[in-house]
């Protein structure tokens, strides 16, 4: 990004009309990916100067216990429901989970889920890191996931969505192809980086379960209806040019007994509809890089200003 400029220069302007058509495999109109955040929150993390980990003095029993529910209960419930309806997860992973709860990571890997990095812990923030420190957490992420799963991570969602001006350049330099941190579009698009090719992967943060339940205070059934409406709209619009819908989840929320039933109806609906390419983030990135990236660059050139 252009550090210190009012426009960070992350991407080019492309309005949501007259775009080159994105065609998903087999004529599907919307690429649907489900992103369980498999996280570990520390009970007593060190303080980051720019962000507090827990609202209460440690131990924040409710905050910590709520998150821990994911690894004891929620993940297992959610994973079974997803598998039942044919959804493979694309995991936003606190990579230290590979040490703390290897059974959760192995279960996801055995189910054919993809992993990308969500930092070391969701209680360690990138704010204030120098370049060497940021490289250290990227290299740690690549190494840890490879050793635990055999997979090479291709994407990044910043830990607790904490960024630095150099994050995107660095992950592209390390060979990653997508970031889930940019929320400007319902289609993938090129991101400006110093080296490599990086795309923005729509993460649909507005329908993140945390947003549904704690920003918009939805009941479980209201949230399920929201996801279905989101899907229906994107599936319809995708006939013109393929769209992306992410369902970003936290199993300590969606995996609770009063929520998982209504959520299962969402997966049943999408799986039965026929317009969805039910897939993983890395597959979407590969497809777009091969078939849509250059067209998107050409689209953007039509709107480029002389002084840009």
């Amino acid at each position: 990004m252009r550090d210190g400029k009012t426009d960070p220069g992350l991407y080019d302007f492309r309005p949501y009309r007259d775009r080159a058509k994105i065609e998903w495999p087999e004529g599907k109109t919307v690429a649907v990916w489900v992103s369980p955040n498999l996280e570990f929150y520390e009970i007593d993390p060190p303080a980051n100067p720019q962000r507090k980990s827990w609202p209460k003095p440690h131990p924040d029993v409710v905050g910590y216990g709520h998150r821990d529910y994911a690894n004891r209960v929620g993940h297992w419930r959610l994973a079974e429901v997803m598998e039942r309806h044919g959804f493979k997860g694309s995991v936003s992973l606190s990579v230290a989970l590979c040490q703390h709860h290897p059974d959760v990571v192995a279960n996801a890997n055995d189910l054919g889920w993809e992993f990308f990095s969500h930092g070391i812990y969701n209680t360690r923030y990138s704010y204030g890191m120098d370049e060497a420190q940021e490289r250290a957490i990227i290299e740690d992420s690549i190494r840890t996931v490879r050793e635990a799963t055999g997979q090479t991570i291709r994407g990044w969602l910043a830990p607790a969505l904490t960024h630095t001006p150099r994050t995107l350049d660095l992950i592209a330099e390390y060979g990653m192809t997508y970031t889930c941190d940019l929320y400007h579009d319902d289609q993938p698009g090129p991101v400006h980086v110093a080296s490599g090719r990086l795309i923005s992967m729509p993460y649909s943060i507005e329908v993140n379960d945390h947003y549904g339940f704690f920003v918009y205070n939805m009941s479980p059934r209201e949230y399920a209806e929201t996801l279905i409406r989101q899907y229906e709209r994107l599936a319809a619009e995708g006939a013109e040019s393929g769209t992306v819908m992410c369902i970003p989840l936290h199993s300590y929320l969606i995996g609770q007994p009063h929520r998982i039933g209504p959520f299962e109806e969402v997966l049943r609906h999408i799986a039965a509809d026929g317009r969805a390419w039910i897939t993983r983030s890395g597959d979407i990135a590969d497809h777009f890089l091969a078939h849509g990236y250059d067209d998107a660059v050409a689209d953007a050139a039509r709107y480029a200003k002389a002084d840009a």
Binding site: R77, R124, Q133, A136
Partner: peptide, 29 residues
């Protein structure tokens, strides 16, 4: 700007919980 190097130390990064109050356990097993 940089963070205290200790911010990248993870002394409790180990199998199981990062405390000793209870042990990790999968409800379904």
């Amino acid at each position: 700007m940089s963070l205290d190097p200790a911010y990248l130390d993870y002394p409790k990064r180990r199998a199981g919980m990062d405390h000793d109050l209870y042990t990790a356990s999968n409800l379904f097993t």
